[in-house]
Nucleic acid binder design. Structure first.
Lengths: 142, 142
DNA sequence: CAGTATCCATCTTGATACTG
DNA sequence: CAGTATCAAGATGGATACTG
């Protein structure tokens, strides 16, 4: 994904990065992308919108996520600074997860994506159907 | 990714979909996500901002992309209705790719993502470094 | 309660070579 | 010029079982 172009200005000169592959590797914004595209990240962050939640509470809310994926998702979100993890040294243990301000700001982007997708998903899906239909037809040489 | 929550309202009741996994599968907006997250989609769409381009022209602009990935990316973008493919029956063949209005509208989202990411990437990266540093420290029992 | 560890299936991407 | 075909490698996600 390119982050440096503007709607009305120029495409980046990839040669000065040593090619597109190198550009993508060096593109810092891109390293942040899975915040929005991870399979569970959006759902997990969404589950934290109303306040802190505990591990099994999230598991119930997500209803179907495996422990591994929840754990993994939470860890990377914590590492990325969008949620905090608070351990209470009680017995049984209690761990709270909570969105940080950075995390809340990311929700805005999540919604921009969701908004566009919600508005245009049907268009895209229709386009796919039409494309696939065309592909079935015999090639017609006129 | 969740598309149905709002910043200030409720998390979707996943049980009525039959669990989170089923919800994600049924979530139409989600099927549209790779438009924004595919490795090359953003770069390719960005290369089309200034007008139609030919295949090898794109290949040069992308400088490093393999033919396969460019071809594949273009085909899925065409299938999704964000670009058009126009074949001129000349010799040698000439094929033009061009953004559709739908494609242009998608660029707005691409920029929302890029904008947030550009503003906050350093924060996220710093958070990761700090997290990884903490992980190296011995566990301290007080 | 709140996790880890292991193993496996699948999906994505890339390198390379060939074609109308 | 504008692609396709084939094969291999790596990343990703999940099922299952175990732990302090």
């Amino acid at each position: 994904m390119v982050f440096r172009y503007q709607m009305d200005t120029t495409f980046p000169d990839l040669r000065q990065y040593g090619g597109a592959e190198a550009f993508l590797r060096a593109c810092k914004p891109r390293t942040v992308l899975d915040l929005f595209t991870g399979k569970w990240t959006g759902l997990v962050m969404g589950a934290l919108l109303d306040g802190p939640r505990r591990f099994n509470e999230l598991r119930r809310m997500l209803d179907g996520i495996t422990q591994k994926m929840l754990s993994q998702t939470l860890r990377t979100l914590e590492r990325d600074g969008v949620i905090t993890r608070t351990v209470y040294p009680t017995i049984p243990p209690r761990v709270d997860y909570e969105l940080t301000p950075l995390g809340r700001s990311a929700m805005g982007v999540l919604q921009a994506i969701g908004g566009w997708a919600g508005e245009h998903a049907d268009e895209v899906i229709a386009s796919r159907l039409a494309y696939d239909e065309r592909a079935k037809e015999p090639v017609r040489s006129v």
